[in-house]
């Protein structure tokens, strides 16, 4: 009868009282993001500190929201930012345009631009939405040198690294 249903419902409610809550007390507790989570972008570096980004603008071309602006310039051995001839002198992402689709990451031939785990990106002024290269570039890894670097000639001649076999 009606009381039966009522009882069942109340029993469900009671059961829930003793179940472990799934609520996480953010920001004191933060849940780890899943693999392949697409958060804040960052430009990676090689272990020696050279930037991976070669200023090719493929990310800008792939971006469906036209959020990326790239200007390229020439590397010299006296002032080297990346291996090869070309580096990104200007690299800006408009985070208000970005839809975090990750196409830029897919397009990048050197695995330079990747979407990381950080999702805490709020700001209060529209202008703060333009993330510049300084903001996006990873810190220099331990053992590496900051860029620009002074490098011996003839060593860093390749822009695009040997890609691993994708069937691996």
């Amino acid at each position: 009868m009606m009381l039966d249903d009522l009882a069942r419902g109340l029993a469900t409610t009671l059961k829930m009282m003793f179940e472990k809550p799934v609520t996480i007390q953010y920001p004191e507790e933060k849940r780890r993001v899943r693999t392949r989570f697409k958060g804040r972008h960052h430009l990676q570096r090689y272990e020696n500190g050279l930037e991976k980004c070669i200023g090719c603008s493929l990310c800008a071309a792939a971006c469906p929201a036209d959020a990326i602006f790239v200007e390229a310039a020439e590397n010299t051995d006296e002032e080297r930012y990346s291996p090869g001839e070309r580096y990104a002198r200007v690299y800006e992402i408009n985070m208000l345009r970005c839809i975090f689709c990750g196409y830029c990451q897919d397009a990048c031939p050197t695995e330079a631009i990747v979407l990381g785990d950080n999702y805490e990106l709020s700001f209060t002024d529209r202008r703060q939405a333009i993330y510049t290269k300084e903001m996006l570039l990873d810190p220099v890894p331990p053992g590496g040198q900051p860029t620009p670097q002074r490098t011996p000639s003839g060593v860093y001649t390749r822009s695009v690294p040997v890609m691993k076999d994708p069937s691996d």
Binding site: I54, C56, E85, S159
Partner: peptide, 11 residues
């Protein structure tokens, strides 16, 4: 060479 990303002719 695998230069398309750095080559001016790309596009």
């Amino acid at each position: 060479p695998l230069d398309c990303p750095v080559c001016d002719k790309g596009g």
